[in-house]
Design a protein around this nucleic acid. Structure first.
Length: 282
DNA sequence: CTCATTTGACCTTG
DNA sequence: CAAGGTCAAATGAG
């Protein structure tokens, strides 16, 4: 990797980390000034999208424009440098972590017991969402050529956790996976943390979300599996993710305008999440 | 051997 | 009755 590009990618990640910390404080009801959650999320998404853009890809985005482009450099060209799996890995994890942050924020808005179900449309199946899932079923769906997979929390029995989720591919080219969460985690794995270890002597804690005053430990969440376990390659992920930046902007779906208008109305949404059936969940 | 996944059967709902 | 959701035995990976 070229040192200059490496520096830029790290700078983007650090910028995202700073905003993530601010977001964390906001979510914990600690005042940090007039910055809104929506602004912070935009900035974090931009930062990690920028970092992703520093990863080599066979089909680089040509028209990516930051949702806060007045503050961020526009991506106009890409250098033929070797891809950084670490940058890609942490960026994708951070974007997924944002989904969790959004859940927690919306729970505060609507009340913890209200949000029982939400969807996330992402270019990759949302498997690394901070919880440990066990697959318990797979079905052909009449309205879709793709099968739907059913997961429940690994701790469903041990800790009487009733959280489940369904993952289904809803579109090809670019691939879009819909992850539907039902129920709430009552297990110990409610916290989510992402740490990054590189191969050398450094150990960065790039981004970390906490809840309930304890941080996910290795014993609670023993693995944050490498993204390599999925069928598509790292390059595919980077490409698909960037392609979906544009795709998502064109198909931004909002079921509950009141929630999204609260703070998320300006989101460019790299990974879509919207709440449905909120009123029907009781 | 243990544990996660697969898959056909069964259950529930409209 | 059809479709979606869940169960549980069989299977496979480590």
């Amino acid at each position: 990797m070229f040192p200059e590009i490496d520096h830029k990618a790290v700078a983007a990640l650090l910028r995202g980390q700073g905003c993530a910390n601010s977001l964390k404080m906001l979510l914990e009801n600690r005042e940090i000034g007039s910055v809104s959650v929506g602004t912070l999320i935009n900035t974090i998404l931009d930062s990690f999208s920028l970092a992703l853009s520093f990863v080599d890809s066979p089909n680089p985005p040509q028209n990516y424009e930051s949702s806060s482009s007045q503050n961020m450099p526009r991506l106009v060209s890409r250098s033929p440098f070797k891809k950084s799996s670490i940058v890609l890995d942490v960026s994708i994890r951070a974007i997924h972590a944002l989904t969790i942050a959004r859940i927690q924020h919306c729970r505060k808005i609507c009340g913890v017991e209200v949000i029982e179900k939400y969807r996330d449309d992402s270019p990759t199946p949302l498997l690394e969402d901070g919880f440990v899932w066990r697959k318990y079923g797979q079905k052909n769906i009449k309205t879709s050529p793709h099968q739907r997979c059913y997961y429940r929390c690994t701790y469903a029995k041990d800790q009487n956790c009733n959280a489940t989720k369904r993952v289904q591919k809803i579109k090809d080219n670019p691939p879009v996976y819909r992850t539907t969460y039902v129920g709430q985690h009552t297990c110990e794995a409610l916290s989510y943390a992402v740490s990054l270890n590189n191969d050398d002597t450094h150990c960065f804690k790039m981004i970390q979300f906490e809840k309930c005053n304890h941080v996910m430990s290795e014993s609670v969440m023993p693995q944050l599996p490498s993204i390599n376990h999925q069928e598509i390659t790292m390059e595919d992920k980077a490409t698909d993710h960037m392609m979906n930046l544009e795709f998502d902007n064109n198909e931004f779906l909002v079921d509950d305008d009141k929630i999204w208008d609260y703070d998320f109305s300006s989101l460019s949404s790299t990974d879509l999440m919207f709440f449905d059936n909120i009123a029907a969940s009781d």
